[in-house]
Design a protein around this nucleic acid. Structure first.
Length: 305
DNA sequence: GTCCAGGTGTTCC
DNA sequence: GGAACACATGGA
């Protein structure tokens, strides 16, 4: 399948912020090492680097083919200006887009994305990363890495998870989420839910189908739909977004959770999910919850107006 | 030690 | 139908 032939390339990109994209809570396995980011995409170990000329360097240790798999994952074909042009002209959203210029929505593999977000409920992002890393280390397939590099594992497939016992998953410190992940894995393996086929359904139907799975409610369904099934309008509402919408859009009165959810789903347009990611990341930046802020960009983060 | 975290399922009224 | 609570674990 994949030959042992190291490959590297450089992608021409326009305003692509690798750090904001890989470290904004949409994917949980990217690690910063030195000047680059390392992760597993499509079963291949990959290293990405933001070059000084604004382009993105990529390298693998196996044959990378035409790199289409990585272009697709990074959504390099998407023009963020076209997306932003569909946004309502709200000051809060404009400010988030300005502050997070170069942030993109990745196109992840559906099972890994769904499973990761099943593990995300009432967990901080740093802990989600720990749990996901642990199930990969214990149950994932080994992937080829550069000589002398620490070992690396891909995300275990639904069939592998489905064959485990709940105790094995609990050993990864995922707590009560173990029964949800196991139940969802077994449902995905047994059918009739076709994860890959969800993208061909209307948003509402795809959402309903995902919510049949144990541990998958509206928030996690929307994350899977947005980050791995091509539903640009899916708008995950979590505690950060709820707080943000209340503060920025309804500072005088709280419209209540249901009205807020309704507003979120309609107000931001056909690329609402992308708007959500800008608002989410901006909120975390402002709260100092993104590591890079503490290092070099403290002066660029305004603390209110 | 307390509070809270990219929620969901169950129970109780 | 909706509010209240349980669920594991660990960082802040």
């Amino acid at each position: 399948m994949t030959e042992s032939k190291p490959c590297s390339t450089v992608f021409d990109v326009d305003e692509y912020d690798l750090e904001a994209t890989l470290d904004s809570g949409q994917a949980f396995r990217w690690e910063r090492l030195g000047e680059g980011w390392e992760g597993i995409v499509g079963g291949r170990w990959v290293r990405l680097e933001a070059r000084r000329d604004g382009r993105i360097g990529a390298s693998t240790v196996v044959d990378a083919g035409d790199w289409g798999w990585l272009r697709n994952y990074l959504a390099l074909d998407v023009d963020p200006r076209v997306i932003a042009s569909t946004f309502p002209p709200d000051p809060p959203l404009l400010e988030a887009v300005r502050a997070c210029r170069g942030l993109r929505v990745l196109r992840q593999e559906p099972w890994e994305c769904l499973a990761s977000f099943i593990l995300s409920s009432t967990k901080q992002i740093v802990q989600i990363r720990q749990i996901v890393g642990e199930i990969c280390r214990r149950f994932g397939p080994r992937v080829k890495v550069p000589i002398g590099h620490p070992e690396a594992w891909g995300f275990p497939g639904a069939r592998v998870i489905a064959g485990l016992e709940e105790s094995g998953l609990r050993a990864c410190r995922m707590g009560f989420r173990a029964k949800y992940l196991l139940g969802s894995a077994r449902a995905v393996v047994a059918g009739p839910l076709d994860l890959e086929g969800l993208r061909n359904l209307p948003l509402g139907e795809a959402r309903e189908a995902l919510m049949e799975l144990p541990g998958v409610g509206p928030k996690i369904a929307d994350c899977a739909l947005l980050f791995s099934c091509g539903f640009d309008q899916a708008f995950p509402v979590d505690v950060w977004i709820l707080r943000t919408l209340r503060e920025l859009y309804f500072p005088r009165r709280d419209p209540g959770r249901d009205r807020l959810l309704d507003f979120a789903g309609k107000h931001f347009g056909p690329y609402g999910g992308h708007a959500q990611q800008y608002l989410f990341h901006h909120a975390r930046l402002r709260a100092g919850r993104v590591a890079s802020v503490r290092g070099d960009g403290a002066g660029s983060v305004r603390d209110g107006d």
